[in-house]
Amino acid sequence: MNALAIPMRAVRQLPGLFIVGFVITFAWIAVAILAPVLAPYDPDAIAFDALLTAPSPDHLMGTDQLGRDIFSRVLYGARVDLFMGVVGLIVPLVIGVFLGLLSGYFVGWTDTIIMRALDITIAFPFLVLVLAIVAVLGPGLSSYFVALALVAWVPYARLVRGQVKLIKQTDFIAATTSLGFGSTYTLIRHVLPNCIVPALVFAVTDFVLIILYGSSLGFLGMGAQPPTAEWGVMIADGQTYLSTAWWISFFPGLALLTLGVGAALLGDGTAKLMRVER
């Protein structure tokens, strides 16, 4: 059973940019997995004999103020940032889709409670609310995930709720009732697969934002904590040395940029792929 059938014609017409995005993103995933093999140094190894060395054959991307190899740290950083992107995406996605389904399918107080919670959440700017929650819970990646779970489900819930309301009107949902199917079954088997595509498409695009916000938190000292090799933290580290040792901030920044662009292109392409012709 192929619930999310992807039309073959669409695959053949894949835009070149989608393939670029796909290659970049999966290259980074490969890097993250293979980091221990690829990295020439221990990312946290301090070397006082090689402080702030410029990029050279020994240190491809140079070293930072503690003599740590930037190249190795960028490779290991891919692990942290991708992990952050994936977990920070899946948790709100699942919560949002679930709440959206409930609130779209069951009218009445279920809908009211979920929608009011949603209203309260969107009353605050996203990053401000995330920062506030992280500040209360204490800096760190796990606080970021909790904050995302509390805040980032909103767009998914809204997307799914709207779709459910549309799908509910269609005759094939009326048909499931007349065929005597239970509402849980109908919800999972018929409503969910027909509602989830916009949410999934949004999720792929959201992936890059989750990473960027996570890095921003790292930069502000609220996310992953030093000495973790996280790109945002590394960019913040190099800030003071920007005029003398540009490479400390530049290479993690470049890594973030390429992953961001890759994921965004992937998201656009996925949106095109999953569009079901009705």
Binding site: A3, L4, D171, F172, A174, A175, G180, N194
Partner: peptide
Amino acid sequence: RKVQMIFQHPQESLDPRFSIEQCIMEPLKL
């Protein structure tokens, strides 16, 4: 089961993601 309804727009009363076989099979199975 004893009282069945058929609707006006046939294409809309079938789940667009199901094959015809799945559409007919579903009530038999369930």
